[in-house]
Every structure is written in C-alpha cells, then in structure tokens.
Simulated assay, not measured.
Amino acid sequence: MSSSSSAPAPVTASAPSPVPEPLRVAIVGTGNIARFHAQALLAEPGRAALVAAVDVDPGALESFRSRHTIPRGYADLDRMLTAERPDLVHVCTPPGIHRAQVEACLGAGASVLVEKPPALSLAEAEKMAAAEGGDRGPWMATVFQHRFGSGALRLRALIDSGVLGRPLLATCHTTWFRPQEYFDLPWRGKWETEGGGPTLGHGIHQTDLLLALLGEWTQVSAVVRRQARDVETEDVSLARVDFASGAIASVVTSLLSPQEESRIRIDFERATVELAHLYGYGDDDWRLTPAPGFEEEITTAWEAGEHGVNSGHHSQIVQVLDALRAGSPPPVTSRDALSSLRLVAAVYASSFEQRPVTPADLAPGSPFHERMNGGRSL
C-alpha cells in the first residue's frame, strides 16, 4: 500500500456574474405625467439609459428633451422603434391610443410600461396582452405605483402571515376635485376616447391597491352618476364589493370633492389599518389600531416590517427595470391589470344593468367586455 496521498484538487475562483447593461429606454408622450417617468429613469443610470422621446407636438418634444437631456426626439413612434431598438418603452399618452402604441412596441420587440388606465375596455386589454411575447417577452406592465410603497408591502406581508386575522370590512375612497376646465381637452370625459370617467381614470389606483391587498372579488353592486360636470361619463361612483375572503368593501370615486383625499381602511379581526394621502404615500400616512388584547403582538409585527420607501413612479420603475434586466416579466403584469380593469367594468355594468354583477357577467360576448359603458349613455 502506497504511503503517498493524492494532492488536493486546485481551488479555482468562479468568475463573477456579468452585470447587465443598462436598458435602452424611450418615452412616448411628453405631457405632465411623463416627467415622473423621466426623473425616475434619470435617477437610475446603472439600470437605464433614456435614449429617446416621442411626441407629435414639436415644441413639447423639444422642451421635454431639453429639460431631461434626452439625446434624440421623434414625431413618429414607428421611426423611433426602428432607429433606436429600445428594450423598454414608457407609454405616457392619452388612453385612447394606448392599444395601438403598446402593440407597435411589443411587435418591435420592446417591453412596455403603460400609464393607467392601460386600455379602454377588457377586450382591448386582452388583445394587448395577447401581443406579448410569452415566457421570454417582450412584456407589458401597467403603472400602479401604490403597490410598491413599503407600507403596502408591509401590510401585504402581515396579511399573508395571518397575524391580523381575516379581513372583514374595508373602505376605499378616491375623493378628488376637478373643475369643468379640466375636461376642456377634447378627449376627456368621453366614452370613446377616455373609456370612462373617474372610476376608470382616477380611482383605479386605489381600487388596484385594494385588490392587491384583499385579493379576488366575487360580486359588485354599484351606481355611477353625472352629478355636476358637463361630460358624457360619470363624475362620481359608489360600489359595494364582495371578496372571496368574505370581506366587503365600500368603494367611492369622485371628482367633485373640494376636500381631496385618497383613503383605504381595512378592519381585520385583530386590527384596523388605515392609509390616508392624496397622490402618493409614505410610511407616516399609515395608521395601525390593534384590537384590545393584541396590542403588543400586532404593533411588534407592524414595526418589524418594511419601511422607508414611498409609493410613486420611481419605486415601481426600479422593479420594472430590475425584472427586465433579469429576463423576468415586470410588475404589474397584464394579468394583474386585467383584474383591476374587470372590477371597474363591473362597477359600470352593475349601474347600467341595475343589478349585482359577477366576473362571469363580463366574459367575451358581454357588451361590458367590449366597452365600459356597454354602448349605453348616462
């Protein structure tokens, strides 16, 4: 038997994983909302390079490019897609033209982050989702930034853990104010070009957050009204929403409320959690009230959760960029957006039909699948 022993195998250091290159990003539409997108992208130079902007208004385009130091501008989306080959396009145009622009971007191989509402109807949203590229992209995501603040993430984690008990009762109110002059733009306040009124165009942020927290809904009873504004669509809506968990919610959306507020309150078995803000929240906008006997347990769990990230475009855009650089579908997915649009469609359908509505009532073949108002007038 040999007394010699085998020499140990040499240890080799593994090569570091390559760092993904920044994504090439373009913005379509240079109105007010686009500035939030540009600011978020410019704050993340390691993740994104903002290479182009598109707008049919030459003056608006040049002003936007100059303000945000964007190297190239285009009047035509197709020309930009051909010339720039972006990885991601932010669609910040009026909702009536979202579908055509999103499908053009997806067809050119670019993923899309589209402003809310992503589509004018469930049928449109489904066709946009069908234009995605499958497991390897390109993908469509929708801006629902309230999901990404640390307060919402903390609450979702506590719901999942069971520490709060079952959700029982909720209120979800978007009570904002818009004067008649707001509707002077020719596409606003019209079913054909805006898809709906504030239930679709404004309150959808809060209702999307409510769905992200409480999950699947089962039935809606609602009324929509035109109370004060000279528009085709509603200016206020009220709905009762039943959830699969057994919780019920009151959902109110208004553009007639001089004291403006965005509010969600959920009463669980062991605590009440409230969020009050206007267009975006931070940690200080949340309030926790434990039920008697659960003060220490609930407060400890709440304080141990995520903190420090405000809701807003930046918080979602970072996650969109990171997902795409990792080759994954970005949040909020087309499936998630369809869920929120389906709830909005149910509010309109229930009001026009004057009866409770379930998800099955909104399937293809329903007039409210094709148009939010089902082709009817208020």
Rank of each mutant, 00 (worst) to 15 (best):
R265P: 00
V252I: 12
G327H: 12
V223A: 13
A228F: 01
L155Q: 11
D242G: 11
S221E: 15
V19W: 02
G189C: 02
I298C: 10
T299Y: 02
G189H: 00
R270I: 06
G293N: 08
Q101F: 00
T93P: 00
A244C: 00
S150I: 07
G282H: 04
S17P: 09
E370A: 15
V28R: 09
N310R: 15
R72Y: 04
W286P: 10
T30V: 15
W139M: 10
G293D: 06
V332H: 05
M128I: 15
R263T: 10
S17Q: 10
A48H: 11
V309P: 06
Y182P: 04
E269I: 01
R79Q: 13
L23I: 10
P186F: 04
L122M: 13
P198L: 08
A108D: 10
G107P: 06
G215K: 09
I33E: 13
E297A: 15
G305I: 01
P20C: 07
S111H: 04
A15Y: 01
Q219T: 13
K116V: 06
L155T: 10
I317E: 12
L164S: 03
P356V: 04
E306N: 03
V51E: 12
D285F: 01
Y74V: 05
V25K: 04
S328C: 10
R65D: 03
P58Y: 00
L81N: 03
E192C: 00
H369P: 09
M140P: 12
E297V: 13
L185G: 07
L185E: 14
E353F: 02
D55E: 02
L255M: 13
V357G: 08
N32P: 01
A40Q: 11
G151H: 05
M128V: 11
T358P: 07
W217L: 02
G162R: 11
T289E: 10
V163Q: 05
H68M: 02
L81V: 02
G162V: 04
L338D: 02
A271R: 07
T174M: 09
A363G: 09
F144C: 09
I27M: 05
D78N: 12
S245R: 04
P86Q: 07
R65G: 05
G282K: 10
T193A: 00
E126V: 12
S2I: 04
E44G: 09
A110E: 03
R371S: 15
S14K: 13
R325E: 05
P292K: 09
L113Q: 13
F183R: 00
V11M: 14
A131T: 09
H90A: 14
E132A: 11
L288Q: 10
K190Q: 07
L50D: 12
L278D: 12
I27V: 15
R226K: 13
I298Y: 12
D336V: 08
R166I: 00
V252K: 08
K127I: 11
T253M: 00
V91H: 01
L120C: 06
P71H: 06
G201S: 13
R136Q: 14
N310I: 00
